[in-house]
């Protein structure tokens, strides 16, 4: 059992790193996708709509498997020999793609909830569109999106456990290995639950602080 404490610590690090990297990349992708969805160029908007609809409509597990095996096939073909995709990398790519699709919808909704008149007021003063984004849209949008983003981050933390299916040694995989080898499934899965619960609680606390910090003044 003692050896597993070290393994759990390593698994925890992997899970946290995976969540942070794919969460950060996913939010960046989500912002871009939201801007694309709201774009005046219909082709861009339609392409982004297609992306978010497909990704949200397919189980995450299948997306992970498709990216892992698809990636392996593609990269092997490219190098002309069998190359196995790194599980962490496959995890980052698939979770980023998924997180981007969900946050894109959140950001889009947040942008749309900003009254058009505020944007027109900025334009009427002669502001450049990107100045309008920075002054009017972005600060309010992030505030509006925070509660929904908190939910999404909690889902993300839990979804990292799916990456263990392609061999990533995260919390989930350590628990599964321990459960099998020591014949104590309850102990190991309870330990894993406690770790995930600690992470999601931490995420909640952080988002509560952010919401307080960025509360709309005067409300």
């Amino acid at each position: 059992m003692d050896g597993f404490v070290v393994q759990f610590v390593n698994g925890l690090k992997t899970t946290v790193l995976l969540a942070l990297v794919s969460g950060a990349l996913g939010m960046a992708l989500g912002l871009l996708a939201a801007a694309g969805r709201l774009s005046r160029w219909r082709a861009v908007s339609a392409a982004v709509g297609f992306y978010t609809t497909i990704i949200r409509g397919v189980p995450e597990l299948i997306i992970i498997l498709l990216i892992y095996f698809g990636g392996t096939v593609a990269i092997s073909a490219f190098f002309g020999r069998y190359v196995e995709v790194n599980a962490f990398l496959a995890g980052v790519v698939s979770l980023t793609v998924v997180f981007g699709a969900y946050t894109a919808e959140i950001f889009r909704g947040a942008v749309l909830s900003i009254p058009a008149g505020q944007i027109e007021a900025a334009r009427s003063l002669g502001l450049h569109p990107w100045q309008t984004w920075l002054l009017v849209i972005l600060p309010q949008m992030l505030r509006i999106a925070l509660p929904a983003l908190a939910n999404q981050w909690i889902s993300l933390v839990k979804e990292t456990s799916l990456i263990s299916i392609v061999g990533l040694t995260d919390i989930m995989r350590v628990a599964a290995i321990g459960a099998g080898s020591l014949r104590a499934p309850l102990t190991f899965y309870l330990a894993a639950s406690a770790l995930y619960l600690a992470l999601t609680s931490l995420a909640l606390v952080i988002f509560n602080l952010l919401e307080r910090r960025f509360a709309v003044p005067g409300r």
Partner: peptide, 10 residues
């Protein structure tokens, strides 16, 4: 100047 003021609330 607009009917609904359109000030930036933040």
């Amino acid at each position: 100047v607009f009917q609904n003021f359109n000030l930036w609330p933040h």
